[in-house]
Amino acid sequence: MASHVPAPVEPRDPQLGPDYPNVPREYAQTRNPLGGESGRWWDMQNRRNFGEPLHAEDEALSVWSPDVPHVPPQRALFHFSIACLCFVAYGVFVPFIQVESPAAPRSYPYDGLVTELGGLEENKARVETVDDEE
């Protein structure tokens, strides 16, 4: 069984009664999942033995609280910065990549069928001209 390093002793909380023990601040997630000193937890789900005193902030230290981070904050900020930089670089360089359209542009005779479809002269499609110099 792994040796358990005791948590540092905190200063006494003045809001607790004088007879309540000064329980160390320990996340339940860091406790051995298989059992305590007796080899098995009385409450396996919360990793607690019967009669064990609760910390004043037990709801923040329980198994159901947010996970204890395993990555130091500086390292996490570095990784987040790299991810943001990759997104920005992708957004900057993608407009420079121009791919030729696989489809041919649609063209209609008679100035885009304006008169055949009954459209207005101002709304007609682009006018195609034939270059005689070719």
Rank of each mutant, 00 (worst) to 15 (best):
residue 66 P to S: 00
residue 21 P to S: 01
residue 12 R to G: 03
residue 108 Y to S: 08
residue 88 V to K: 02
residue 28 A to K: 13
residue 77 L to R: 14
residue 101 S to K: 14
residue 5 V to D: 12
residue 64 W to R: 12
residue 84 C to A: 06
residue 3 S to N: 06
residue 41 W to T: 00
residue 13 D to F: 09
residue 43 D to T: 02
residue 110 Y to R: 13
residue 61 L to F: 04
residue 72 P to W: 04
residue 76 A to W: 05
residue 79 H to F: 11
residue 70 H to C: 11
residue 14 P to L: 01
residue 27 Y to D: 08
residue 105 P to A: 11
residue 44 M to K: 06
residue 127 V to S: 13
residue 46 N to R: 01
residue 21 P to F: 06
residue 59 E to S: 05
residue 46 N to Q: 06
residue 64 W to F: 11
residue 51 G to S: 02
residue 114 V to A: 09
residue 63 V to M: 14
residue 22 N to Y: 13
residue 35 G to S: 04
residue 48 R to L: 14
residue 71 V to L: 15
residue 79 H to C: 04
residue 1 M to R: 03
residue 93 F to T: 12
residue 27 Y to N: 13
residue 81 S to H: 07
residue 12 R to E: 03
residue 6 P to N: 10
residue 126 R to Q: 07
residue 8 P to I: 03
residue 71 V to S: 04
residue 27 Y to S: 08
residue 82 I to N: 04
residue 81 S to E: 05
residue 21 P to Q: 01
residue 48 R to I: 07
residue 69 P to V: 04
residue 61 L to T: 02
residue 126 R to V: 15
residue 55 H to N: 07
residue 23 V to R: 01
residue 19 D to E: 13
residue 113 L to Q: 07
residue 36 G to A: 05
residue 109 P to E: 10
residue 68 V to K: 04
residue 81 S to Q: 10
residue 24 P to H: 09
residue 45 Q to Y: 03
residue 3 S to M: 12
residue 120 L to F: 11
residue 17 G to C: 09
residue 127 V to K: 14
residue 104 A to F: 10
residue 97 I to T: 03
residue 33 P to L: 00
residue 67 D to F: 06
residue 41 W to C: 00
residue 68 V to P: 03
residue 39 G to C: 11
residue 121 E to D: 14
residue 129 T to L: 15
residue 57 E to R: 06
residue 54 L to F: 11
residue 25 R to H: 11
residue 38 S to G: 08
residue 41 W to I: 00
residue 60 A to L: 15
residue 35 G to A: 03
residue 2 A to L: 08
residue 89 A to V: 12
residue 64 W to E: 09
residue 43 D to P: 07
residue 64 W to G: 07
residue 124 K to Y: 05
residue 84 C to R: 00
residue 22 N to R: 03
residue 100 E to A: 06
residue 97 I to K: 06
residue 99 V to Y: 00
residue 52 E to A: 06
residue 125 A to M: 06
residue 126 R to H: 08
residue 57 E to Y: 10
residue 9 V to N: 07
residue 121 E to V: 14
residue 65 S to Q: 05
residue 17 G to Q: 12
residue 80 F to Y: 15
residue 132 D to Q: 08
residue 78 F to V: 13
residue 37 E to P: 09
residue 40 R to P: 00
residue 61 L to D: 03
residue 74 Q to Y: 08
residue 88 V to G: 09
residue 123 N to R: 06
residue 32 N to G: 05
residue 9 V to W: 08
residue 117 L to P: 01
residue 35 G to P: 01
residue 76 A to K: 15
residue 75 R to I: 12
residue 46 N to I: 00
residue 62 S to T: 15
residue 3 S to D: 10
residue 61 L to E: 04
residue 106 R to I: 13
residue 118 G to P: 00
residue 42 W to E: 11
residue 51 G to H: 07
residue 51 G to R: 03
residue 110 Y to T: 02
residue 128 E to C: 03
residue 128 E to Y: 14
residue 97 I to S: 10
residue 103 A to K: 06
residue 42 W to A: 13
residue 73 P to K: 12
residue 54 L to T: 02
residue 102 P to M: 10
residue 50 F to Y: 07
residue 46 N to H: 07
residue 45 Q to D: 10
residue 93 F to I: 09
residue 113 L to K: 09
residue 78 F to M: 12
residue 17 G to F: 12
residue 97 I to V: 11
residue 26 E to V: 14
residue 82 I to H: 02
residue 133 E to Y: 08
residue 7 A to T: 04
residue 86 C to F: 08
residue 87 F to P: 00
residue 36 G to C: 05
residue 20 Y to P: 00
residue 44 M to I: 05
